[in-house]
Write a protein that binds this DNA or RNA. Structure first.
Lengths: 230, 230
DNA sequence: CCAAAAGTGTTTCCGTTACACCCATGG
DNA sequence: CCATGGGTGTAACGGAAACACTTTTGG
């Protein structure tokens, strides 16, 4: 069936974002395999004959982080003829937003994984730099209008933490008071009654997501950042 | 190289939108080939070994419409295991916005192509219905914020025509005066000095796109439709 | 001179912004 | 008691929405 048509290698590459409280970070691997052994790249793998793309992307993310139930989104499929010098290979990029403190550090280390801030990120193989840029642009685009940011934080978090995240995403300072009002006006946050214990000054309120409203409202337009920023 | 990894069939399917002045339409084909001979589907084809995705999508669109230089955008890649009963096949969906009056009708007819409004659209094979829905959602999402609509109109067009297009996309009536002001405030339109001759009442001004500004501002956020609509 | 569609103006309203003050905490 | 960061309030501004009037055209 479909005789005479070509079959192609199809890979999945994951752009894995994390947030450590100060900087937005990217999880990369130093390749101990060919091609481009010894260079940095995104975590990736081939799509198997009996595996859906969704399953494949989850599997590949899990191989490096040990995580399941992570927010992932298919970004784009890259299909230039010469993008992989070994053989014609398509690559479908997925971005993943993970809570950086929950992943399996041991596992990541064993796969030569390392977190990088954007200002110290090494050059990557193939078109992976381009994939990262595209994913970053998508993150900025989407986080401006949709409550994406929560995916990068722990289950309980404070509004100042969320603000730091948005400031990291857009690399711009935001007004505390306006940001707080915008976030609270979405009605997506529930006061847990607890306070952040880590601070040396006034303790901030710990909120958690109202999962139900979050699902429902995810496609509504919000404006988490000042207009004209993206 | 990459021995032991699977290769997969990879197809491209095109969601082709057109606008006839009243309704938003979709160009579909009645298949005279297997599988699903005799049923309706999107125009598609396989990606060739020596062809990039971009070239492939253009080729496939051209085979049905005879058009080149069409606005196309990659939407999503579908990779469920069972989506094509003949053989495991990925499909990358592209949407195309074409000026319905410029395509090669003869060619389209020879390929069993036919335009459908959304309310008379037949059920489609495989996951093509889902692809259409996704593309439609993308059109709504994007046209709300970016000046996409122009791609569907003739080179010279009037503001009322553009408004009818937006009303078709969102299936909602819009306020003439506010819509006109919004569009003109973008500064993307140039008055050609000509007037639309077809009307039986007051003739509307024919505008054309300021291509340069269009390219520059395409990624800026506009609000062509009232908030909360999408 | 009438109907139908196109063009332009104005007021109102609401969300965003820009800014100030108070409160809690640990040292 | 003071420095630091967190929470809340308010006035001013600007863009969007709601609405009305005038103009052009063909019949």
């Amino acid at each position: 069936m479909y005789q005479g048509e070509s079959k192609l290698f199809v890979a999945i590459d994951c752009i894995i974002f994390g947030f450590d409280g100060e900087n937005l970070k990217l999880l990369l691997i130093k390749r101990n395999f060919e091609p481009e052994l010894g260079k940095w790249s995104l975590m990736g793998g081939f799509v198997k004959e009996n595996e859906s793309l969704e399953d494949g992307s989850k599997r590949i993310l899990n191989e490096l982080t040990g995580l399941e139930n992570v927010y992932m989104e298919q970004i784009e499929t890259y299909g230039g003829i010469e993008r992989d010098p070994m053989a014609r290979t398509l690559s479908i990029s997925y971005f993943a937003l993970i809570n950086i403190h929950e992943h399996d550090e041991e596992l990541a280390r064993s796969k030569n994984g390392k977190w990088f801030s954007f200002d110290e990120k090494p050059g990557l193989i193939f078109d992976h730099n381009h994939m990262v840029e595209k994913a970053m642009a998508h993150l900025r685009y989407k986080a401006a209008l949709h409550p994406l940011g929560f995916e990068l934080l722990p289950e309980k978090f404070t509004i100042p933490q969320l603000q730091k995240l948005y400031e990291a995403i857009y690399d711009k300072p935001l007004d505390r008071r306006n940001f707080s009002r915008k976030i609270l006006s979405t009605d997506l946050l529930v006061d847990t009654g607890e306070k952040n214990e880590t601070g040396t000054t006034k303790k901030a309120i710990l909120y958690k997501l109202d999962k139900e409203k979050y699902e429902q409202q995810f496609n509504a337009f919000h404006y988490f950042i000042p207009k004209g920023l993206v």
